[in-house]
């Protein structure tokens, strides 16, 4: 029977997260044996809390990558957000959100209206927004509203509030991507804009929303980071673009668009963090850590290539 052996679409999407899930399990086992401290719950919570911002940014990045785009400007948006909210001005937070959304809007206009390649478009806004961040706050410092510091240091049921928020965001985003109409339209647009358009998907709107969401989530990441660091830093986000893309790819979401989900990329973030933390605990030098990370990234990403009929 032909039907029995064929891959179902939902299964394929789930499978895309498999390699990194396997990797993280292996890593956990290895670390558990080699350092008694590695899997201590307090250590794991520390790692989670540290990764909240990157997880938020990655959620947005995934949306864009599913449309076969790429958003390099997320790191600058993170920096700009921390720069804005660390100033003692009224409506700092709404202002930061509005600024971030306008970056997403500019990205989408450049890509949709003027046909600029996503990499070039977001590379340009990345540079420009970095400039804005430096302009707004040339030197790290400043102060965030008191409620933000309270948010960052609150703990409920043993979990820091930022971690709880991240879990909620990931669940909601996961539902949007895998269960909502918009999610399906992201996949359709990413596989072929022309076909999706003929199939009744308003691809321009899908892409616009994807870039807006990416900037919005980057802004959330920036707010969380500013709260955690209780200050603004115009360069603090510089690694976020690359890290979020690496985690997305590691999590089995295709950079060519149209295939993936949220579980893989979030697991990818946690994997990279756990790896860094574990290697630190094992007293392995930073240089070796970078080599190991690069090698694992190649390994994990190449493991995805085979499970893809029709793409």
């Amino acid at each position: 029977m032909k039907v029995a052996q064929a891959t179902t679409a939902v299964r394929l999407r789930r499978l895309s997260a498999l390699p990194v899930i396997v990797l993280i399990v292996i890593l956990a086992v290895v670390l558990g044996f080699s350092s008694p401290y590695a899997l201590a719950s307090q250590n794991l919570i520390n790692i989670l809390n540290q990764q909240v911002s990157l997880i938020l940014v990655t959620v947005g990045q995934v949306m864009v990558i599913l449309t076969a785009g790429l958003d390099l400007s997320v790191g600058s948006v993170v920096s700009m957000t921390t720069a804005i909210v660390s100033h003692d001005i009224p409506f700092a937070v709404p202002l930061a959100i509005a600024a971030a959304l306008s970056v997403g809007l500019v990205n989408a206009i450049g890509i949709l209206r003027f046909g600029v390649h996503p990499i070039l478009m977001t590379l340009s806004t990345m540079t420009a927004v970095q400039g804005i961040a430096l302009f707004v706050r040339p030197i790290p410092g400043g102060q965030v509203p008191a409620w933000m510091s309270t948010y960052a240091s609150s703990v409920f049921f043993g979990l820091p509030l930022p971690v709880i928020c991240a879990i909620v965001v990931v669940i909601v985003a996961g539902a949007i991507i895998s269960r909502s109409r918009f999610g399906l339209h992201l996949m359709a647009t990413g596989a072929s804009q022309d076909s999706a358009l003929l199939g009744g998907v308003n691809t321009n709107r899908v892409i616009l929303i994807a870039y807006l969401l990416s900037s919005f989530f980057a802004c959330l990441g920036g707010l969380n980071l500013a709260a955690r660091l209780a200050s603004g830093d115009p360069l603090v986000g510089s690694s976020f673009a690359i890290d979020s893309i690496a985690a997305t790819a590691l999590g089995g979401t295709q950079l060519s668009g149209g295939l993936g989900g949220i579980t893989g990329p979030v697991t990818g973030v946690l994997f990279l963090a756990l790896l860094g933390n574990g290697l630190n605990l094992l007293n392995i030098s930073t240089y070796y850590q970078m080599i190991i990370k690069g090698a694992l990234l190649i390994l994990a990403v190449s493991a995805h290539r085979r499970s893809q009929p029709g793409l």
Binding site: T8, H185, M187, A188, A191, D194, S195, G199, G200, V201
Partner: peptide
């Protein structure tokens, strides 16, 4: 031209957009 999306399931393709 084929406008089916290879990365979606048959059902998803059939109902795409509605």
């Amino acid at each position: 031209e084929f406008i089916l999306l290879p990365n979606l399931s048959v059902a998803e393709n059939l109902f795409l957009g509605r």
